[in-house]
Write a protein that binds this DNA or RNA. Structure first.
Lengths: 339, 339
DNA sequence: CGTTCTACGTAGAACGGTGCACACGATTCC
DNA sequence: GGAATCGTGTGCACCGTTCTACGTAGAACG
């Protein structure tokens, strides 16, 4: 008959409490916890029972000081993009059945915030990191990767030696989209891209620009890329301006649905028919593209699969692998009525 | 598996390294780090310089064992709702200039995941928690709140003694929405609500139902509430069914834009005119409501302000306050063309 | 029957900080 | 002029784990 009531809150239950309750040494309990070699079934059973009755949970903070924390950090650049939840779910699909948990940080599209978040995760002694479309350069990533296993999504750098990369083939995706517009008979195809820092050759937008240019070149047409800043509220304004120019382009390939969904909306609100007056193909196939009133054709890069693969890759790296893995996934075009 | 030769710990700079470099005791460095009492300007200066040149960062894991980690955990029920990013940004608005950082966990709409995430954050010795619309009951929250300061958003329980709550006045918001529909001459107003667990009187959906019923009652009309499960992909199907019933309601108040945006889309796709054939008012004023093609009237609860207030409240509680604070914010109606 | 294995369990030193108790010289007080 | 006070810095015992080295009993071996 155990003392009813306030045992959980009263005295903090540590590994020592468990050891005493089970009548064994602290080290023995630790061994059970870690599935370490050298514990008899009887001991394991005994300890497990004590853990159960006491409601013991090992302290991740203390664990981190010598061993693993069984936690991986996920760094999101910004949380607003509806494409990201898919990636996170993919990661958790893999992590959930494993012994690892995840904790996320939000970069707020600001590089100093990103780096400080990574450092914070390192300081918490997390076991590995998954970065999603980080702003920082490969050199910076390299430095961190020397301290902690890292898998990166949305950062093209297939020669990186210290970390793994998992990407959709953005060149191929852009090629697919542009070719679809070409096949529909369009020649006047503009790409709406995102302005990115000059030193970021790893950026997905840049890769998509290459794919677009390649398709145009193959068709013997001149490409035209319009770069827009992505800073929240000004986007609709810029898009409206874009549509008011004369002559207005007849077909647009958008680097992201973040722009494309708004573009279709604004175009229709201005009285333009989509796709008759303006054909649009976006990128990411985010949930909004599927809304009946939007019905946007888009490149699907399989966010969930991207996340799952990143998690698997990280897991294997945390398991001791040192040779870098660089994975490239085939995207696909989801045809809807917009273009 | 670890290679024996090249140590990863190659030149790890700890508080001891700093102490040696500055020619002072470890305790002195610790004092500087914590802004503790009893350090001269000369010492502080000296230590600071060493920290700078060595690039030292204190280990959050080690810190957590006795002191604070200067980290607050944010628990998100699910990451898909576009309303949540606003809340998170509000939190970070307040946290960024403070000495605290944040780390997020994702509940995946599954209660066991939520609780395990909270426990994980406790195990990391975080200093405080902000929970956004948690599924769990007040009793469970109470138990956790005894172990760590907690501020909760989107959980109505104004009598909770152990934790703070920050809410929008959901009854008032629903009243506003329903009265707007009544004022437009509608009498046949249905509320589309979310199915929630029977023991969750704290749920925002429940509060909104009360507000709706109140408005209908005041108008001398019978209310009708239709509850739908929110489990991802089945929503459009249910909404379509809802619109195919005869007689079809003329006006709908939706507990969330999560439903309302889809509802407007499906209705228009079915050839219904909004608002002439079907008036709709949603809740949350999420970014999609503002899309020109959707143009959904919605109740704005000021997510950013909600987040900011939660962070401030938590900060003050972590500072030693014990008396619970319960904050209720006035929502407002954002009129667009849908209803 | 003594010796070597093998399997199981334990003691105690890390890990990187915090925070209390205290030492110690310089003021201030009576 | 001795005691009390104050401002600064230090020593050391924690915090809750992991991990290495070692002890010990029983089995297998020659």
């Amino acid at each position: 008959m155990d003392d009813g009531g306030s045992r959980v809150t009263r005295g903090k239950v540590t590994i020592r409490t468990v050891a005493e309750h089970a009548g064994v040494s602290v080290a023995a309990v630790s061994k059970v916890l870690r599935n370490a070699y050298g514990v008899s079934d009887a001991l394991r059973q005994n300890v497990m029972e004590s853990i159960e009755t006491l409601g013991y949970r090992p302290s991740a903070a203390a664990r981190g000081m010598r061993g693993r924390t069984f936690t991986v950090g996920i760094l999101l650049v910004e949380i607003g993009n509806p494409f990201l939840p898919e990636v996170v779910e993919g990661i958790n699909d893999i992590l959930a059945p494993s012994e690892f948990k995840s904790l996320m940080g939000m970069g707020r599209s600001h590089m100093p915030v990103e780096t400080s978040l990574i450092e914070q995760m390192i300081d918490f002694h997390m076991d590995g990191l998954i970065l999603v479309a980080p702003r920082m350069s490969g050199a910076v990533l390299d430095r961190y990767a020397r301290q902690i296993p890292i898998a990166v999504i949305g950062h093209h750098e297939a020669t990186a030696a210290q970390f793994d990369t998992i990407n959709s083939d953005d060149q191929c995706g852009a090629l697919l989209a542009t070719e679809a517009l070409l096949a529909a008979g369009h020649r006047d195809i503009v790409m709406l891209s995102q302005a990115y820092a000059p030193d970021s050759s790893h950026a997905v937008a840049g890769q998509r620009e290459i794919g677009y240019q390649l398709a145009m070149q193959r068709a013997g047409l001149p490409g035209r890329i319009v770069a827009m800043p992505y800073d929240g509220d000004s986007v609709p304004h810029h898009l409206r301006q874009f549509l008011e120019q004369t002559p207005r382009p007849r077909a647009v390939f958008c680097w992201s649905d973040l722009f494309a969904v708004d573009l279709v909306n604004i175009a229709r609100a201005m009285g333009l028919r989509v796709p008759e007056d303006l054909a649009v193909i976006g990128y990411d196939n985010n949930p909004l593209a599927a809304l009946p009133l939007v019905d946007l054709s888009s490149i699907d890069q399989g966010g969930r699969r991207l996340g799952a693969l990143a998690a698997e890759t990280l897991l294997s790296r945390m398991d001791g692998r040192n040779a870098p893995h660089h994975i490239l996934l085939e995207p696909s075009l989801v045809r809807r009525t917009s273009g």
